[in-house]
Nucleic acid binder design. Structure first.
Lengths: 239, 239
DNA sequence: CGCCACCTTGAGTTTACTCAAGTTTTGTGG
DNA sequence: CCACAAAACTTGAGTAAACTCAAGGTGGCG
């Protein structure tokens, strides 16, 4: 047994113990047994479409992607946001159930599906990734089914602040210390709206409201400085 | 390799090939190697609460269950409906992220988590179950994020009609033949509302509207006769 | 037969949506 | 580096869908 703590799928060599999935990223790009193909995407490139044949898995090494589904009349729902360390390309059937599109420049590690299914180690890793994604989906289901626009946007902003708002919420770090953070949205207002089940105008209005209330400062459209993390957290509906 | 086609987790004996997950149910109750514990629940019994220690997996042998999450102010979102052949009790962390409650009388097969993690066969089966649940969650995300009340209720009704409305939609079976089906809801209006992200009044009004339009007949509150499956299907937003 | 839980319906309200400008930002070419 | 165009974002006014609150109806079971 190798004792090193590996955190990326691309680092797995069939012997390393599992140690999480998008939980921390201490390793350089994968250089294990899977020296295989890397793939680069520009923002808004589509990696695969809903209905495409599912033959490969991908690990996001750098950048942000989204999975979305379309209704025939053009309504779109973004069902998942993928960040560094996340995997995509799973499918139960022969075909993908979602479209995968890059939100930023992206670098991917590519795996052939059979590489996975022949390695119990990788099976196990994929399993943990699926469970992690499932929990995220459950949370997002609550957001879409039961939260107000203000709660949705606040929850979204909190999801961009590591170690806050969730199970492992550390609270304001220390009395007197500034409780702030600048986050990169990596998404347009329309993409945020399609993720949160709102319209672009509603997202814009909520952001303006948070700005007026002095909880955030919009720096570059794509970059928001949260001036009071705890204040935003109180608006998520989870406290 | 055993060549028989097994369709339930509880039938797996470590050698049978995977053959789906809640896709068809031809086998009697599981009697494979896992002769282990069975558990019965009455309607509205809670199997486990969000936050409970996750130590066992369960397979639904009979009946219907739901997974739900609560917000601190009491708002509830049902995140998944589990039917015969479905598995529950997965967790990435040490604790469950949802509460599991029986909607009807339920019979479960119980598995200790370590039984699963030591069998590659079971690992693989669990994997397929997770992927199947993930696709269902993606569909439900679209429903919650982008569909109207009428579309949500119609989609819910269609989900109770096997082989219709989804990927393998066969369409109206034959010209002239009646396109009808009686479905058991197995849920109160409140539970349906909490699943569809609506209020009980809205669910009730939509059902009344479908009744008025002659698409369904309500037989026993819990039992709905769909008199025009294709008509309901047209209202799901997916055609 | 009557109670209790569940369901339905109505009236009024609220939230988020639609439509329509107007503004800001970003990217491109001179 | 500036001017311009295109894309993205914001804001306002009016509307519509679903919500809340309240009352009344229905059905199942002792």
């Amino acid at each position: 047994m190798v004792s090193a703590t590996l955190t990326k799928f691309s680092d797995l060599d069939g012997q390393a113990p599992f140690n999480g999935c998008q939980e921390n990223f201490k390793q350089p790009d994968g250089i294990g047994k899977n020296t295989g193909r890397k793939q680069r995407l520009s923002a808004h490139d589509v990696l695969f479409y809903e209905g495409d044949k599912a033959e490969r898995l991908y690990e996001v090494l750098r950048g942000v992607m989204m999975l979305y589904k379309l209704l025939p009349d053009g309504r779109r729902q973004v069902v998942y946001i993928l960040r560094e360390g996340d995997m995509l390309g799973f499918s139960n059937r022969e075909f993908f159930d979602c479209t995968a599109e890059a939100l930023t420049e992206v670098e991917l590690q590519v795996f052939e599906s059979r590489e996975i299914s022949t390695s119990p180690m990788m099976q196990h890793y994929v399993n943990r990734c699926l469970l992690s994604q499932m929990e995220t989906l459950h949370e997002h289901t609550v957001l879409l089914g039961r939260k107000s626009a203000l709660e949705r946007v606040s929850t979204f902003l909190m999801s961009l602040v590591p170690n806050r708002g969730g199970h492992g919420c550390s609270g304001p770090i220390e009395e007197g210390k500034p409780d702030t953070k600048t986050v990169a949205l990596s998404m347009t207002r329309q993409e945020i709206a399609d993720y949160l089940g709102l319209t672009i105008e509603t997202v814009s209005r909520v952001i303006s409201q948070l700005k007026r209330r002095g909880l955030i400062k919009v720096e570059k459209q794509d970059s928001i400085h949260i001036t009071n993390i705890c204040g935003i957290c109180q608006l998520t509906g989870m406290h």
